[in-house]
Write a protein that binds this DNA or RNA. Structure first.
Lengths: 179, 179
DNA sequence: TGAATATGTCAGTTCTATTGACATATTTCA
DNA sequence: TGAAATATGTCAATAGAACTGACATATTCA
């Protein structure tokens, strides 16, 4: 999937903004203080998560263009860099994709020496994955660009926002992967 | 893109969890209280946002299977339902895709009567998009499933978490679309 | 009236993901 | 020890979602 990196049309975004305010007032009821109900859609959160993720991955997309890599390459490289020595099976579980899907992307990263494989010490069937120097550098570069986005966001938010944001997101994911 | 809905292997997830704790301790420095630095990657937020979004869209995927629709259909239907009467150009800006990409998906939603078009009142070149009854019902069904995920998350979080989460996500996105 | 705009469409391509089948090496267990 | 299970890899076919480029139509605007 190639991705659309055209500039955003500002005129339309203003329209969009106005319409959204309207829609929010129309459809989103004010929230009670204590327990949160699930019987009414939480459009505020649905939309906020959509837009945040859209722009968050957009940062990486721009960088990856230079390497002729796509999002899939990034996700693989990211996790290998963060969890050096993880097995193929663990990577598949993290990404929730099949090994056939992983295959092409991983092969390209191996061929271009961003990742390397070593047989497992305990279990020699395993191919443990490690980032190379170049792989680590690229992973870090992308992570820094994304972190700048978070830093800009946190500048606009009260103290404690980082912990709150992380806790919120962790609770939203299935396994609360980040405790 | 078909999506992988196979059950998650729990053994590996435990491994994953252990490894992640390890990695987090190794690579993520403790955060200072006040101003947040951008010179160090915020792996906690990067990962939390990735997992939250992965599981959040997973909910919709399961539902959409029944209708032979994909993620793209859902995004279109969602925004048309939330902003009835929006123009094609506005929709393209929201989704950040090209009109050629939108075309197939929108045509299917029109053909199957989940969305309908009406010419703009002021500008008759426009094709304003509206959900049909069926379209609204499907959009609502999916939004409720996703909202249940949020409700479960909020149950585990202190009061105020909803507002904090929404504010955090809004600040992370480019235009703070949700004020 | 002519340029710009909003939308639609055709054709070809790329990337990411899927299912299914099968192969190899290694480990585990009866 | 030998069979079954596991970890990984690979081939083939297909689907879904995106892209670029080119061109057409209707409508509005200057």
């Amino acid at each position: 999937m190639k991705r659309n990196l055209r500039p955003v049309r500002r005129t339309s975004l203003s329209l969009e903004r106005a319409r959204m305010d309207q829609a929010l007032q129309r459809q989103t009821a004010p929230q009670p203080a204590g327990r949160e109900p699930a019987d009414e859609p939480m459009f505020d959160l649905i939309e906020a998560l959509f837009f945040a993720y859209r722009d968050f991955v957009g940062d990486a997309d721009r960088l990856l263009l230079r390497y002729n890599f796509g999002r899939a390459h990034h996700r693989v490289l990211y996790f290998v860099d963060r969890r050096p020595g993880l097995s193929v099976a663990e990577l598949l579980d993290l990404l929730r994709i099949t090994k056939q899907s992983l295959s092409r992307v991983l092969k390209e990263l191996l061929d271009q020496a961003y990742i390397e494989q070593r047989p497992g010490l305990a279990d020699r069937r395993q191919r443990l994955l490690f980032p190379t120097e170049a792989g680590h550098a690229l992973a870090l570069e992308i992570a820094l660009v994304q972190s700048e986005r978070f830093a800009r966001a946190l500048d606009r938010l009260p103290a404690g926002a980082r912990a709150q944001g992380a806790a919120f997101l962790a609770a939203v994911s299935d396994s609360g992967e980040i405790p």
